[in-house]
Amino acid sequence: MAQHPAKPPRVGDKPAIRWTLIAFVVFFGSLLVLAPLLVIFTQAFALGIGHFAETIALPDTRHAIFLTVLTALIAVPLNTIFGIAAAWAITKFEFWGRRFLLIVIEIPFSISPVVAGVAYLFVYGLQGLFGPALQSAEIQILFALPGIVLASMFVTAPFVARELIPLMQAQGRDLEEAATSLGASGWRTFLTVTLPNIRWALLYGVVLCNARVMGEFGAVSVVSGKIRGQTNTLPLHIELLYHDYNTVGAFAAASILAVLALVTIVAKLALERRGAGRAGRPALASPTVAIQEKTS
């Protein structure tokens, strides 16, 4: 900037613009995000904390919470592995169809989850490709946990890869190539060179993926079968309670879902803070140092 004094001032240099912009963002942020969140919690406790606890303690609600957490515990690690593998393959290797793979990974972003759910019906449903064979083998995919996990995984497949790919592209292959040329195995290179470089992006991807898995409604509602106490996830259960004129119950369940999401975000912030405190150096430097130490 200093060498171009003639340039007009940037947006935000004038206090009036700065404050208008900030006020605008704060206003709409509160209106769009904070107000509904507050409503959820006030409605949930509208009839007192006793009633809230009672609703949460209902077996169906408890099971819905359990099922949602269980789905996340299966889907998120699998998608994390998939995301790392995909990002690695796309950014570190040259191969035919690389761009195509990139597009495939992005598909779930642009497709409505309901379409995904219906697509699974056509593949695994009784009228679909494998349905009759699966039924005669007594394997239940749809309207059971596997279907819910598959649908959730479809919807959240891009999250980790999308966070990693730009970063890994920017970082290039130099460090990994150096590590390999110095004799590190592929696995070791990944653990000591790549992983430390991508950890924050990875963490962010995992958090987003987790939040989305827990909140997924459209795809899951098609393949779940909505059996209370068996295949009703928390978002589906909220809808059920709401349609049943159990407003407080619906908001109580919604507040639990909101809390689950908030917990992931807080966990991410806490991890970031700890990590940032410990590593007071640029992230890129650390793996290089590690390799040097090894060879000296």
Binding site: G128, G131, K226, I227, R228, Q230
Partner: peptide
């Protein structure tokens, strides 16, 4: 007795697709 609830057109569809 387990229960599944939803719009009945969707429910019928699910049964046709294998909801037992």
């Amino acid at each position: 007795v387990d229960q599944s609830h939803g719009g009945t057109s969707a429910q019928a569809r699910s049964i046709a697709e294998g909801l037992e």
